[in-house]
């Protein structure tokens, strides 16, 4: 990652993986990537990093005892029973 162009593109990569960049910059990144293995690895691992966090977030649930204490603290415990486990 010592090339000037790699540095120049670095700040755009986050938006690139979100598909939020203009076509012209995407083309620029893709052309560069074709000849720069380092940048290809950085982009692939950046994309994977984000997707791992997305996936992990889906598995984060509130423990049932935490939910129960919340309803009690809010004096809404009578609505606990009628709700899902």
């Amino acid at each position: 990652m010592s090339h000037e162009q790699c540095r120049y593109l670095l700040g755009s990569l986050s938006e690139y993986i979100d598909g939020k960049l203009d076509e012209s910059i995407c083309q620029e990144i893709e052309q560069h990537m074709a000849g720069c293995e380092n940048c290809r690895v950085v982009i692939d691992t950046l994309r994977k990093t984000v997707s791992l966090y997305h996936e992990e977030a889906l598995h984060t649930q509130t423990p049932e005892d935490v939910r129960q204490r919340l309803y009690k603290r809010l004096k809404l415990e009578d609505f606990l029973l009628s709700k899902k486990p």
Binding site: V41, T45, L52
Partner: peptide, 28 residues
């Protein structure tokens, strides 16, 4: 911007490794 220093393509690691309990703790 964090200049990339680590250039390792670890995307090919199996899901069991990427989403192990240890890996998740590391993510957090």
């Amino acid at each position: 911007e964090q200049e990339p220093l680590q250039i390792v393509d670890w995307c090919c690691l199996p899901e069991s490794e990427l989403m192990s309990a240890e890996a998740k703790a590391h993510l957090d």
